[in-house]
Write a protein that binds this DNA or RNA. Sequence first.
DNA 1: CGCAAACAGATGACAGGACATACGTGTCGT
DNA 2: ACGACACGTATGTCCTGTCATCTGTTTGCG
Lengths: 161, 161
Amino acid sequence: MKVVEELRYLVLAIQREGNRLLAAELRPLGITPSQAEVLRVLRDHGPLTLNALGGLLVCETGNSPSRLVDRLVAQGLVKRGIDKVDRRYLALSLTAEGRALHRRIVTAENRLHRTMSTLVAGQPLDETIATLRAVADAFPAGAALARRRDPEYDHALAQER
Amino acid sequence: MKVVEELRYLVLAIQREGNRLLAAELRPLGITPSQAEVLRVLRDHGPLTLNALGGLLVCETGNSPSRLVDRLVAQGLVKRGIDKVDRRYLALSLTAEGRALHRRIVTAENRLHRTMSTLVAGQPLDETIATLRAVADAFPAGAALARRRDPEYDHALAQER
DNA sequence: CGCAAACAGATGACAGGACATACGTGTCGT
DNA sequence: ACGACACGTATGTCCTGTCATCTGTTTGCG
């Protein structure tokens, strides 16, 4: 098996299993890993339009995450306002329940992170991250991650409109 | 952001984008990445029962891939036979069309692999793979990969029944 | 033998992702 | 002012992946 092919299958395997573990941790909270990512991004990056939210999500890269947000609104975790000046834009933000749930999500995610930490113990983690970043940065989903790291980005977003 | 958390999101991003690229390569062939994985495993590991197939797949780890196989049977790419001695078991194998399509799949996958190779050029790929294997091997999906690498496994499977 | 337990697989239900397309709103050129 | 266009969002459709549950087959024990 070619080396990059093994890389591809390893990434697939880890993503699947990590997602299963996280889903199991989050199930008692009534949300899914993708929904948790939305809550996290909304919490960290203030009110966002749907497109801006999509630009910061790793899941659901190509599309507007309309339906993902729908379910969170239905659960009362996200508030979907409409921009007064330009009625095309949404103003998405967490409700009080959303913020409260986010704190419990962090706890659940930390349990997964502890498991992962034991698995990578003794491995060259920094080199691994660098390699994966080199791949991810070439794509929209990787760029979304980079934007989340960049504190300037929120200001640029705010300027834009 | 914690290091293992970044790892988690990087893996997610790469899996998503890799899948999108591969899906685009495979679309002209009328199949999806998951379906391609089934064809590949069936080609490499001879006739399999549904459970044995599931044990070698990285996608669809927990379940029997009934419906995944359904579509391949409907397309005439996979033959679904029934074990004569124990009618609970399936005997899944490629049809002639399935084998022919597999050759075109390899070409499509190679295009993706060339793209990935340029992206990881200059990175410590071996260390990265070792790290990811350490994580993946702790899970069923990783074990599936390990079994695919192990030439003994097919014999063990055959012995079993 | 005869029936419960074990096992392989199928199916129902639901959330996700992806693509294409439709709809509503604002912008801009004329 | 108005009409084409651009843009943000919504929706239809398909396949996937997960869990739970169901069906049908074989095994094995009383």
